[in-house]
């Protein structure tokens, strides 16, 4: 994959995303409403509990964590599974496979444009609003840089999970079922619905080792400088965790994809 092709695909993606202008504003607006919901809910929850800190998380921490998780969710949301199932049903998949780029690489970069747009158009405004509302509760420093690096890793992990699930769709027509199972598992076990800090210890011990944590929990923990990620010693294992899963998932995903495509071409699609 040469840089020119990468740039061309990203650029096309950005233009296409901007094309849907009203959609961009609506997404931002909906995000803000969601932010309000999370705020009120957790304010009430903390107020009822009568304590300031629960499992190492203050109200502000929890709120920042959940709102940015949702914002990341919108930003990371890829419709790879749906696109794949539609292109299988319409037979367009054959054309995609004939393109002179590796299919996985092609898919990844064609989403990069919309990632850039939604990062700028929805994540950054949400981030700024959260910063203002919480009056500087988000530490500002090198952690922002680490957060962005970690988000890029998260994006790759997420893409790999999406691709593996999308590959399963080559075998079954049950896209809805497959996709909802994936979404539920990712949202719950990555800490996007409720911060992992609140999980019971035994469950948490298991979740710690699964790749889903690399998608939402790791970048947000780094951003909030929790669990010792404010030091290099604390940071390295976390990045290592993400990179390890990227390697494992990329290898597994590529093997699975190549194997499946071969099988399907043999069967005559």
């Amino acid at each position: 994959m040469n840089p020119r092709k990468v740039f061309a695909l990203t650029r096309a993606g950005i233009m296409e995303s901007l094309h849907y202008r009203l959609g961009t504003f609506v997404t931002l607006f909906a995000n803000l409403i969601y932010l309000v919901l999370v705020y009120y809910l957790w304010k009430a929850i903390y107020a009822s509990s009568g304590v300031e800190v629960v499992n190492g998380m203050t109200f502000t921490d929890t709120m920042i964590y959940l709102i940015l998780a949702t914002s990341l969710f919108n930003f990371l949301e890829m419709f790879v599974v749906w696109d794949m199932s539609r292109s299988i049903q319409s037979g367009k998949i054959i054309l995609d496979l004939l393109k002179p780029l590796k299919f996985r690489t092609y898919t990844f970069w064609s989403y990069s444009g919309s990632h850039v747009v939604s990062f700028i158009m929805t994540f950054i405004p949400t981030f700024i609003i959260v910063m203002i509302v919480t009056k500087g509760a988000i530490p500002i420093g090198l952690n922002l840089v680490y957060f962005i690096i970690s988000t890029v890793f998260a994006l790759i992990v997420n893409f790999n999970i999406e691709m593996i699930v999308a590959t399963i769709c080559l075998y079954t027509e049950s896209t809805w079922g497959i996709n909802i199972v994936k979404e539920t598992i990712v949202l719950l076990l990555s800490g996007a619905s409720i911060p992992l800090a609140f999980f019971p210890d035994k469950l948490r011990a298991v979740v710690e080792y699964l790749p889903f944590r690399a998608v939402y929990d790791v970048p947000l923990t780094i951003l909030l400088e929790k669990n010792g990620t404010d030091t290099l010693q604390g940071l390295l294992p976390v990045f290592g965790f993400q990179i390890l899963w990227i390697v494992i998932l990329t290898a597994a995903g590529t093997l699975f994809w190549n194997y499946s495509v071969k099988k399907i071409t043999v069967n005559g699609g």
Binding site: I45, W176, G177, N179, V181, T184, F198
Partner: peptide
């Protein structure tokens, strides 16, 4: 598969609920 998916959704919602009430 869809039924499993639906059960997962409800189960996950329920787990979230339980975790929440464990803490608060």
């Amino acid at each position: 598969i869809s039924t499993i998916g639906m059960i997962m959704v409800n189960l996950s919602g329920f787990i979230t609920f339980l975790i929440l009430f464990r803490n608060f």
